[in-house]
């Protein structure tokens, strides 16, 4: 079979029609159940998303033993909270501090911790982010409104294998005594990719 041959050119040029044509053919052949597609879409549109990661971060901020487990074995720690599955099979958590800022990218495709953050936003999958996050992370951070002092070291994690990275942002000042549920409302998706900071109260 030719290695670089492309059958996709046989489909309609309009993307929505292209997808519809393929779904219709696969359904006729008994290869897919449209109801299963609905279930997959419902899962990622409504159930699995950044609120999962935010719950993990808020717990790490309030439960030092959990934080230690999360940093030493992220996969097991997030599984304790029920967060397992596709594109979250192997999890490493990295913690932002005054000295170190972590940021996550996938330069080769769009690897992302689905089980914790859901489906990646468009910018994460964009050529600009994939190309530039590794070379000029501070320039990219500035586009997100984040400016770091040179004394803060930037560590960029390029997700080249099946390890998925979760950034634990710094806990905002003025949140002493807050419950994990309230703290989770401050944890943004971008802060868990390392392209933002947690909201201030």
């Amino acid at each position: 079979m030719p290695h670089d041959d492309h059958a996709h050119s046989l489909l309609p040029s309009e993307p929505a029609l292209r997808v519809k044509a393929l779904e219709t053919l696969l359904t006729r052949k008994g290869l897919i159940d449209p109801a299963a597609l609905d279930t997959i879409i419902d899962t990622y549109a409504h159930k699995v998303g950044p609120r999962n990661g935010a719950a993990v971060v808020a717990r790490a901020w309030t439960d030092p033993a959990f934080r230690d487990r999360l940093l030493s074995d992220g996969t097991s720690a997030v599984a304790e909270m029920g967060f397992t599955g596709r594109q979250g099979e192997h999890v490493t958590a990295v913690e932002n501090t005054e000295d170190t800022h972590n940021m996550v990218v996938c330069t080769l495709c769009s690897c992302y911790p689905w089980s914790l953050l859901g489906i990646p936003p468009g910018w994460y999958k964009s050529d600009a982010y994939r190309a530039r996050a590794v070379r000029e992370p501070r320039g990219v951070l500035a586009e997100f409104g984040v400016t770091l002092p040179h004394s803060t070291k930037v560590r960029v994690w390029d997700s080249t294998a099946e390890i998925r990275y979760l950034v634990i942002p710094r806990r905002p000042n003025g949140t002493e005594g807050w419950s994990p549920e309230d703290l989770a409302t401050l944890v943004t998706r971008d802060s868990m990719i390392g392209c933002g900071e947690a909201r201030r109260p």
Binding site: P15, A16, V19, K20, L22, E23, L37, D38, I41, A45
Partner: peptide, 8 residues
């Protein structure tokens, strides 16, 4: 259709 493409 983005959702359909992912699910498919």
């Amino acid at each position: 259709w983005h959702a359909r493409a992912l699910a498919l």
